[in-house]
Computed example of a mutant assay.
Amino acid sequence: MATASYLKRLTRRLTEDLGDADAASIAQESRATGAQRASECCRGDEVTMHGELRAVETCSRNAKAGVKAEFFDGTDTVYLKWLGRNRIPGIEPGRKMTVRGRLGEHDGNKVIYNPYYELYGSDD
């Protein structure tokens, strides 16, 4: 009987979408830190979230100079924008971090401008 449930769990893990498994792992880690879930936050909220950077891009156009990052906490995506910066050491795809700031909205997406952040190493 225990073998049947083991086989079900193993089959589910082998056949599930890697993106879903990754999202569940990040969401579980975020809950463990006590951070807020991006999916439950709305514009104007002062938030603290824990998650992972999925993509980072630098914008060097005059009016929109800065660094833009896609932050994912396992429930939703929030864009982080640091204005007036060309590059920020440590802000790179795959880095785990905790961010804090006021949640806004731009073009229908959640965004935090110039968030406070704490980076975690790969072994944290």
Rank of each mutant, 00 (worst) to 15 (best):
A4N: 08
A4F: 12
A4S: 10
S5R: 11
S5T: 12
L7W: 06
L7H: 08
K8P: 00
R9D: 09
L10P: 00
T11Q: 10
R12N: 09
L14I: 09
T15E: 06
E16Y: 00
G19Q: 06
G19C: 00
D20G: 05
D20A: 12
D22A: 13
A23Q: 02
A23G: 04
A24I: 05
S25N: 10
I26L: 09
A27P: 01
Q28A: 15
E29C: 07
E29L: 15
R31S: 13
G34R: 04
G34Y: 05
Q36V: 01
A38D: 02
C41L: 05
R43Y: 06
D45H: 04
V47L: 02
T48K: 13
G51Q: 03
E52C: 13
R54I: 13
V56T: 08
S60T: 12
R61D: 12
N62C: 03
A63W: 10
K64D: 14
V67N: 11
K68G: 00
A69Y: 04
G74M: 04
T77Y: 14
V78E: 03
Y79G: 00
L80P: 09
L80F: 10
W82A: 10
L83T: 15
I88G: 03
I88Q: 06
P89K: 14
P89I: 07
G90S: 11
E92W: 03
E92D: 10
G94M: 09
G94F: 09
G94N: 05
R95K: 15
R95E: 03
K96A: 09
M97F: 08
V99W: 01
R100A: 14
R100D: 03
G101C: 09
G101N: 08
E105K: 11
E105I: 11
D107Q: 15
D107H: 13
G108Y: 04
K110R: 15
I112M: 01
Y113G: 04
N114V: 06
P115I: 02
Y116R: 14
L119R: 09
G121R: 11
D123R: 10
